[in-house]
Amino acid sequence: MRFDTLVAIALVFIPFSLTSIGGGSAIVAGIQHEAVTVHGWVSSREFLDLFAVSRAAPGPGMMLATVIGWRVAGWLGAVIATLALFVPSSMLCYAVFKLTNNHRQKRWHRAMREGLAPVGIGLIIAGIISLFRLSHGGPSAIAIIGLAAAIFLWMPRFPVLGVLVLGGLVAALAATGF
């Protein structure tokens, strides 16, 4: 049973590793579908909490996989999920960097760079849509998202952690019905 769970974790995250074009934000929608709907590892509420935790913690947002693995199967689950998500893409990147870095000016390299970028952006938008659907998103949610985006856009030097704390505070104030 436990072994089956570890194998299931690996089988979920390895394909996401190789499809996370544009980074971890691109696979939030997919991970949510697998972890919540398909495998029932976490509830929608827990998934949103884990997303918030993974964004507030240091390091890449893809550490979302680490905490899901940890929730499902403890330390071993965390290690398996982390390796499953980072090793395949890392090996691919290593190989591609080593083999193609001298061909950057070639037409195929440019087409590959420019062609993959819009797919990555589309996936991030899909991630926003599915996260918003999970949350109890009302007008205050849209206000916080918009406010945070405005700060990130126009005050790029503003500390990210500060914006996240601010978002938590505004939501707490809204919940107490000020």
Partner: peptide
């Protein structure tokens, strides 16, 4: 509520990535 707020603020980060992209 606080967790939601942090998640919403983090979604703002994603929105900015989308705008640039």
């Amino acid at each position: 509520a606080i967790s939601d707020g942090v998640a919403f603020a983090a979604m703002g980060l994603l929105v900015v990535m989308c705008i640039h992209g």
